[in-house]
Design a protein around this nucleic acid. Structure first.
Lengths: 243, 243
DNA sequence: CGTTCTCCTTTGGGATCCAAGTTCGATGTT
DNA sequence: AACATCGAACTTGGATCCCAAAGGAGAACG
């Protein structure tokens, strides 16, 4: 009955990690050690350990004697991340297909339904040409991830799961993007691809599911690029580099 | 004229990283903070930061209040790592092919020649049934990696390079393995595959090179499994888990 | 208008110190 | 002999205080 142990450094790292990948902390932000130690009510020691971990994960970059900066992802990095994710998800999907249980399939359906609903909302907004609230977009992305998570879980490949998830970054933050009507068909396509994957998995076609997953990730990469582009010059500069 | 800056934590992390992936520090070893701080002549503070980084890279596992342990890779983890590497290298090779310059190709040839020589040595040893010195095996693996590194460099995909390299672990350490004659053909095959990849790249066949790279990594994964197996019960226990 | 030269902030790191968790051997019990 | 218990000796996680050195923002100066 050991109370689930964890060090403060780990706790802090987890919180910051969520905030960074979730976009709550904007790329380019400089993280001050003292400020963090106040916020988490700890000394600088565990804070610095947590920051080291984030640096190793590639989320922040250490600039010796200058501080730690939240890395921003450039367009090319984003493209590369999607290429990588496409391959990894393709593999995970292939492996997962023959392993899917009825329960897994049900979970997949639930995730897909949620995703489908959010997609409809998003499309409605896009068609009306409203300035989108990014919160909806973020929710949509998370529902998307939830769908893929079911597959990862079924694949039972911890390494691949870790790597693929580390290639997921919210690059949107809390910026508002002006939804353009042309996005509508891209959203619709995304949803259809999920269904196709679902059916291929249900049919037990590992090879088919694999190809579909690959295409899906690539195409969702293109979607992201269009969205980013539609953000205008919202991208923060800095060819962030570091540890 | 900034003298190339780096923190002690980073230096320590790099050294330990090399020693762990290179097998100089055996899996399962517990790293004592005080001992490390003596060795590197620093206080415990930067040592702990370095360890956090290694933990984030998955090289060691933190066990709160117990210390850090060098993770050992299980057979299934090894298999997974090779599956992942196969996909990533396939992608990298595909991307690299149209980008290869004459200089890159020359570098590839040089790496291949070195690899080829070591392969011959290794095969001779294996055929004679001698107990192999693991140093030769390690050298051979490194030459192998050098070959692939040329391709990574040409692909210019930093993320993929980082991920793929993190999936490389020397699992052999400095244990001695009894080379078995049956390994001979596997070694030979490995070398032939390198040549095939080289030729496909030279011919500018991205798709061909991709397929060859994938097959090659998978087959070299099988080779590793056989070698490991031939090590007998040399594997250290511990379903290493952690941060 | 460009160049130094301050002063201030922040970081990297050392030295102590302490509470809490772990290890392990000694002891006692059945 | 097998087992449970207890208490020291180690280690770790972390706090605190300290200090040198590296940037950064202005001010002073040419």
């Amino acid at each position: 009955m050991s109370t689930f142990l964890s060090t403060k450094a780990d706790d802090i790292a987890r919180v910051l990690e969520d905030e960074i990948v979730g976009g709550a902390i904007a790329p380019g932000t400089v993280l001050r050690q003292e400020q963090l130690s106040e916020r988490f009510e700890v000394s600088r020691t565990p804070v610095r350990e947590a920051l080291r971990r984030l640096a190793a994960l590639g989320l922040v970059s250490f600039e010796p004697n200058r501080g730690v900066r939240v890395r921003s992802v450039s367009a090319t990095e984003l493209r590369e991340a999607h290429l990588v994710r496409a391959e990894l998800e393709a593999l995970a999907t292939e492996v997962a297909t023959p392993r899917m249980t009825a329960a897994d399939l049900a979970a997949l359906d639930a995730a897909e339904q949620r995703f489908s609903e959010l997609t409809l909302e998003l499309r409605a907004q896009a068609r009306r040409g409203e300035a989108g609230e990014s919160s909806l977009f973020v929710e949509w992305m998370q529902a998307n991830y939830a769908f893929h998570d079911v597959i990862y879980a079924a694949a039972e490949m911890p390494l691949i799961e870790r790597l693929a998830k580390s290639a997921r970054r919210t690059f949107i933050g809390d910026r508002v993007w002006s939804a353009r009507a042309e996005l509508d068909e891209l959203y619709a396509k995304n949803d259809l691809q999920h269904r196709a994957i679902r059916e291929a998995v249900a049919a037990g076609s590992a090879a088919g599911a694999r190809l579909l997953a690959r295409e899906h990730v690539l195409s969702s990469g293109r979607l992201i690029e269009v969205v980013i582009e539609s953000l205008g010059s919202g991208g923060s500069r800095d060819p962030g580099w570091g540890t």
